[in-house]
């Protein structure tokens, strides 16, 4: 473990957007389960599989968000691919160097 040489990794993440356009990070259990790495792989795999897989994942995340009281403010789910610099991230530059929106879908109230 922890032996691989890293560069600037690309991450695919799930975000929640509120009515006031505030962007929240969605917890891993909204994507897969409580394991953040499993959520990361699920998002990455959907990104690799293309629009159909991304749309299906986005819809399933939105359905979970709709059931979550704490996330009732979230009106849309976004799946975004972003490239970060891990070292500058914690030195005052947490913004991604590059970000691309892969999919967006509405949260339908239950």
């Amino acid at each position: 473990m922890f032996a691989r040489v890293l560069d600037k990794p690309e991450l695919t993440v799930a975000l929640g957007v509120t009515a006031s356009r505030e962007v929240l990070r969605l917890p891993p259990e909204m994507v897969a389960n409580e394991q953040p790495m499993q959520a990361m792989r699920t998002l990455r795999q959907a990104g690799k599989d293309g629009r159909g897989a991304l749309k299906a994942l986005c819809t399933s995340i939105a359905a979970r968000v709709a059931r979550e009281r704490d996330l009732s403010r979230v009106k849309r789910v976004r799946i975004v691919r972003a490239r970060f610099d891990p070292l500058t991230y914690f030195e005052g530059a947490p913004e991604p160097e590059h970000a691309q929106r892969l999919m967006s879908c509405p949260v339908k109230a239950e």
Binding site: P9, L11, V13, A14, L24, R25, L26, P27, P28, M30, V31, P36, A39, M40, A82, F84, P86, Y89, F90
Partner: peptide, 9 residues
Amino acid sequence: NLRKIELGT
């Protein structure tokens, strides 16, 4: 730590 923060943990 970065990926955990970005993944909402």
